[in-house]
Design a protein around this nucleic acid. Sequence first.
DNA 1: CGTCAAATCGGACAATGTGTCCGACAGCCG
DNA 2: CGGCTGTCGGACACATTGTCCGATTTGACG
Lengths: 211, 211
Amino acid sequence: MATSPSGTENSKDRLKGVIRDFRREQVIDVARQLFGERGSIDVSMDEIASRAGVARSTVYVYFANRDELVRACLESLHSHLVAAVAASWESEPDITGRLRLLIDEMLARVDDAPAFIRMALVTQEASGRGGDAIRQELATIGLNIARLLRGLCEEGMTQGIFRPMDPDLATSLIGQQIYGAMAVRAAEPLPAERSTTVGLLTDFIVHGLGA
Amino acid sequence: MATSPSGTENSKDRLKGVIRDFRREQVIDVARQLFGERGSIDVSMDEIASRAGVARSTVYVYFANRDELVRACLESLHSHLVAAVAASWESEPDITGRLRLLIDEMLARVDDAPAFIRMALVTQEASGRGGDAIRQELATIGLNIARLLRGLCEEGMTQGIFRPMDPDLATSLIGQQIYGAMAVRAAEPLPAERSTTVGLLTDFIVHGLGA
DNA sequence: CGTCAAATCGGACAATGTGTCCGACAGCCG
DNA sequence: CGGCTGTCGGACACATTGTCCGATTTGACG
């Protein structure tokens, strides 16, 4: 640690870090695309590596194993979602509008990578052996979205738009509806126009089926 | 074909058929239980075979491959569901009551084999290579349940309980909600009392979140 | 009881994919 | 130049699926 000036060393290390991140994202991008097209089970590490233009063994330098790579892809998807939502959140003061916004972005993720979402929604599967990292990541994502939803519910009730109700319950019910909608859309060969679906979904959540 | 009296031969063949069915169900039961506990990915054919007390190669006499076995398990689960619903359907004339009944039975299936349901809900994954048989079966099951739901929706609208709406849309929305609820429940380590959940869910479907 | 056929066993096999490891090699920095 | 680092590419051990086949059991029938 004393062999070179700390300034130079830091800069060098930072450069290395940047390069590493860049390579990592290169692999993640390829993996996300392949997973999005064909799900995660059907894509081998071999294929990801060769498509990313690196050796298979090199992939294992960046990711401990397959699950870690999948986890990183989920993380990437999530951060894109968060960024997209944050971008228009403040400019949409209406509660229902924000709900619509959130749903729209989530369904957009589905349209982006249907096969991957299909897998993600269920990779809670694989409860036995591996998959711990993946489930962990999904839990984190779920929690984060639940946080958004819960805020929405509480404000909706305060404003008298929603009827009084345990906010956790409301959050869970909305979450389940969105979850179902995502899963169904992910399985659909030709999903309907997203804006239409979002509108109908939001309406249903607010009004239900009753007369 | 002329070597023995046809009567005897038929009886013998039927017996063989019965035996075959019996053995098949033996394997299916074991597989369903293991899948229910740990999902389908984590259970090897080896383990299923040895737990069922047969050789691995024998399993392949009854099922062409892993997917066929999974398909058979799904079929079994579905037929149990249908039987349970049919048993109390007629004695429940109320539309909301029937909806509650259907939801209750579906969630009961989840409680029965959470890990398997988790997988089933997403085995639309594996869109590439195999999995065709499984997806086929899931589509059939989904269609059948959608049929029930659609009838419920139409009758509800006729009776003025539900607001007028495209019945296909209503069916899809309810289906998605139930789907989400099943998936979430399947992932829950300690799901809430089923009757409570069913009540809240039904209420939400009918009334939504609005004030 | 002995015979025969079908069912089952059990293990070998090829194919595929994962994760590990290591020697070779190229580029960069001192 | 000489060493360091990251990458390559391929060999390896391991697990699993699905196939195959000879040996063995079972059970029905004469």
